[in-house]
Write a protein that binds this DNA or RNA. Structure first.
Length: 875
RNA sequence: GCGGGCGUGGUGAAAUUGGUAUACACACCGGACUUAAAAUCCGGAGGCUUCGGCCAUGCGGGUUCAAGUCCCGCCGCCCGCACCA
């Protein structure tokens, strides 16, 4: 009888080797089985695997192993999102080449992932910094250029003058560069853009069809795309300004046009610039606005300020009505036309502005049933639905009718030789600027020639390889000061020309890697046949932090790849799942204030004193404040590395812990107790199986339908069904609870078997139950499952075996126990044959003691019988 | 400001989507085994109770035979976007 403890450190490598030798996880593109593509967002090789990765990849692996057992040809690949700034920062700080740093990290992290026993197809592995990969990305770029999906235009960027690079908005913290701390400047730079806005409407509409995506993510994308329907109105200028005779304004509320009391334009608006030429005070104001901070805090607290340009416009419906044009600091050049008309009564911001500058406030919408004569707006704008007032021919209409009326009338009027108004759909979504003044990224394959302009690198000359001989002793882009790399002949005229030295945003790399996995050996970016066969990804799993950018870019890229013939679908991810974070409580000595000192979990000892948990710093004996659960971060030192579990308890324990207790979309707390508990359960399974294994050796699995054995079979098949359903729905925590339940149910019978006290029927049922148990734990604890299977005499691997099939006859009971309520409160139970008709159930219920007592001899008012559920007697 | 979500034991959480509230786990308590401890196994447990019951899913109301679940109003927490016209 095997009674030793299960030793994961010995077993896990053994089974990993066995799987690898049989190449069980290598997907073949010509496999006739139905396909299933499961993918976890690939990691950035920062140095070490984080516990969050462990959770993410465990979830994907459970799905992959389950689907494989269900008979699918499963593609479950892994790669590395390997370009990006941290490699360059490391180069600057530690004098190590970004390439060396990156590949070193990849090597480390690959080994860490292998310890996890993930069923990954390592044959398809690649890193986005492989020349082989970015070569294909450059091919795609050129195809996009040819298709008109790429433009080059000037745009405002956050410029870090110290690091001499463009920063993304999220890299600007309180107006300063996140790394250098230098004050960020706004600069106009000519940049490369992908024309994602061409697909704005399609990207919005297609969200509807993504019914396996979280509503939350779809909503976030919808808001990000930000579609609005409005009217473009051309207001005549009272007198021409430097040849201009109109001001174009975009509005979603043309119905409020009679409430207009001023116009406001952005500081960068052409009209503002022209007016400033002759007005030094205005020029000064515009300059001030430009230098205002762009940080969230600055915007929130910034006072609404304006400056009257002296320019006047004429109201489209009243030649005698003129309105002043202000330059205002809250109007954005990037949205609409960079100009608005202000209707103070219907917009809080406009109202504040009007009150500040003494502009008229005319209420134009009032609540239905209100009194038009007395209705006034002073401090709070009225933004709800209602009826039009003070609006001449619009009076009495609802705002949406007034909208149409104004649109209809102004469309017919003309200004210059254009209509005075046009209906226009506006999007918040901007084109995707991909230029980065960095070294460690995919070079943009373009050449600047003085005579020919911007010329694409001929495909035959690809790849444009990053030069290795670069130095990072100075800030800025090393490609810009490389002695030879940037000098090149113009492919068109042959004259000396200059390479584009910008590289692509790393989001480009991650926007098509899922397609590359389908045929990573292909010479073209994709093998369209393979891509169309495997895609869309059936189940994509990753963090919510990518809900907008990565997922939106990938959706755009798939469309662009379709337009250029690389694949033939629009939506890359059929099912999306966003998993929660791994959190841990924090410890801090020296008070909760800012001067406190954070401690790592390893530095504290938890004591239980009179029911209260206390954390004591081991080194000093000082008590530390226990802080809330927070995302693991280096600054708060509440990180736990996967090795903390795998070194002691093994990969299966780590995998089990990551999926236990908490729903996968929510945060999971890492606790020592949890890890110990998961490990205890693993040992318990091993003990259950291994102690019974000898007695069960010659026993044939059999399903029993009666007696003690029948109860075992019944419970086992019910749980088998439930676990399958839970995994399909990614309800891993529920699946695990069911498995605990099965272990609890089997404990007594299996002990009987081990003690030789079981009859043949119970032995057969137990044999079957144990086999099912082993298959049920296999997706989560694959190594233990193999060890158990071997102990039971299995000659093949669980990893290559099919998922067990439950017997439908066993999951329904012949007898049903109805809870019986009287007036909605449970008073007892009724056990009756499953197929008893309503009449029989009612008769039996009314005969029950407690029901008779409650009815006091009277007839019930009503008896509600919900078949297979509940009975309620209304007295 | 706009949009969305959440609130259930000491703790993480279940609840077939309107049908027995608290499955499963952690922690806790008791028992067995042990010289002892660990490990393991068995058992207990929402609160109050006059032992008939009564009260409990953030608070208050409503719909319903029946509400954690649906509706209305509060309170609290979390997330996303944000000067978007």
């Amino acid at each position: 009888m095997a009674t030793e403890r299960y030793n994961p450190r010995a077993s896990e490598p053994k089974w990993q080797k066995a799987w690898a030798e049989k190449k069980l996880f290598e997907a073949r593109n010509d496999d006739p089985k139905p396909k299933y593509y499961v993918l976890e967002m690939f990691p950035y090789p920062s140095g070490r695997i984080h516990i969050g990765h462990t959770r993410n990849y465990t979830m994907g692996d459970v799905v992959a192993r389950y689907k494989r057992a269900k008979g699918f040809n499963v593609l479950h690949p892994m790669g590395w999102d390997a370009f990006g700034m941290p490699a360059e920062n490391a180069a600057m700080q530690n004098k190590v080449h970004p390439k060396e740093w990156t590949y070193q990290n990849i090597a480390t992290m690959r080994e860490q992932l292998k310890v996890m026993g993930l069923s990954l197809d390592w044959a398809r592995e690649f890193a986005t910094c492989d020349v082989d990969y970015y070569h294909r990305q450059q091919m795609l770029f050129l195809d996009f250029v040819e298709k008109g999906l790429v433009t080059r235009k000037s745009s405002k960027v956050n410029w870090d003058p110290e690091d001499m690079t463009v920063l993304a908005n999220e890299q600007v913290i309180d107006g300063r560069g996140w790394r250098s701390g230098a004050l960020v400047e706004q600069r106009e730079l000519t940049q490369w853009f992908f024309k994602i806005t061409d697909y704005a409407q399609d990207l919005l509409d297609s969200l509807d069809g993504l019914d396996e995506w979280p509503e939350k993510v779809k909503l976030m994308q919808q808001n990000w795309i930000g579609r609005s329907e409005g009217l473009l109105i051309r207001w005549p200028l009272a007198s021409d300004v430097a040849g201009e005779h109109e001001l174009e304004v975009y509005t979603t509320r043309p119905d409020t046009i009679f409430g207009a009391s001023f116009m406001a334009v952005a500081a960068d608006h052409p009209l503002a610039k022209k007016a400033a030429e002759t007005n030094p005070e205005l020029a000064k104001f515009i300059d001030e606005v430009r230098h205002m901070g762009t940080s969230v805090a600055a915007l929130e607290t910034a006072e609404k300020k304006g400056f009257d340009t002296g320019i006047r416009v004429v109201h489209p419906f009243d030649d005698s009505w003129t309105l002043p044009v202000y330059v205002a600091n809250f109007v954005l050049m990037e949205y609409g036309t960079g100009a608005i008309f202000g209707c103070p009564s219907g917009d809080q911001r406009d109202l504040d502005f009007a009150n500040k500058y003494g502009l008229p406030v005319i209420p134009v919408v009032m609540p239905e049933g209100g009194d038009a004569k007395s209705f006034q707006i002073t401090e709070e704008a009225y933004v709800d639905d209602g009826v039009m007032i003070n609006s001449r021919f619009l009076d009495g209409m609802k705002p949406d009718r007034a909208f149409d009326e104004v649109a209809k009338l102004l469309e017919q009027k003309t200004i210059g030789n254009r209509p005075m108004a046009e209906r226009k759909v506006n999007f918040r979504l901007r084109d995707w600027g991909i230029s980065r003044q960095r070294y460690w990224g995919c070079p943009i394959p373009m050449i600047h020639c003085e005579d020919c302009g911007v010329v694409p690198v001929p495909k035959a000359d690809l790849p444009v390889k990053l030069p290795d001989d670069v130095d990072f002793d100075r800030p800025g882009n090393p490609l810009d000061r490389h002695p030879t790399w940037r000098h090149v002949k113009c492919p068109q005229c042959g004259k000396d020309a200059r390479r584009e030295t910008d590289t692509m945003d790393t989001f480009v790399d991650s926007s098509w890697y899922f397609a590359r996995f389908t045929a990573p050996w292909a010479h073209e970016p994709t093998d369209p046949r393979a891509a169309n066969e495997w895609l869309p990804v059936d189940q994509y799993i990753g963090g919510i932090e990518h809900a907008i950018l990565h997922l939106l870019y990938s959706r755009f890229f798939t469309r662009a790849m379709r337009a250029t013939g690389h694949l033939d679908l629009a939506e890359p991810f059929k099912g999306l799942f966003t998993q929660g974070m791994v959190v841990h409580e924090t410890y801090r000595v020296g008070g909760a204030s800012n001067n406190g000192r954070w401690l790592s979990p390893a530095e504290v000892r938890i004591e239980d004193a009179e029911g209260k948990r206390r954390a004591i710093e081991i080194a000093t004996g000082e008590e530390a404040a226990i802080g809330s659960l927070e995302k693991m971060s280096k600054s708060k030192k509440n990180t736990v590395s996967p090795e903390d579990i795998t070194d002691g308890y093994g990969a299966d324990t780590a995998r089990w812990l990551m999926l236990s207790d908490s729903p996968p979309e929510g945060d999971v707390e890492w606790t020592d107790d949890g890890a110990a508990g998961a490990h205890r359960f693993m040992q318990r399974i091993w003990r259950l199986v291994s102690t019974a294994a000898e007695t069960l050796a010659g026993v044939k699995p059999a399903t029993a339908d009666a007696g003690e054995a029948g109860a075992v079979s019944k419970a086992t098949h019910k749980i088998l069904k439930a676990v399958g359903e839970d995994i399909e729905k990614l309800g891993f925590n529920r699946a695990i609870a069911r498995i605990y339940e099965l272990a609890n149910v089997l404990t007594t019978p299996l002990n009987q078997v081990a003690e030789g006290k079981a009859d043949p029927a119970l032995q057969g049922a137990c044999r079957e139950a144990v086999e099912i148990l082993v298959h049920l734990i296999a997706p989560v604890m694959p190594h233990l499952a193999e060890e158990c299977w071997e102990t039971l005499g299995g000659t093949d691997l669980v990893a290559e075996r099919p998922w067990p099939v439950f017997d439908p006859a066993l999951v329904v009971d012949n007898q049903v126990t109805y809870p019986v309520q009287v007036n909605g409160k449970k008073r007892g139970d009724l056990t009756i044959a499953r197929d008893a008709d309503q009449g029989a159930v009612e008769k039996a219920v009314l005969a029950l003691d407690f029901v008779q007592k409650a009815l006091e001899g009277k007839a019930p008012r009503k008896v509600i019988i919900v078949p297979q559920r509940i009975v309620n007697v209304v007295a």
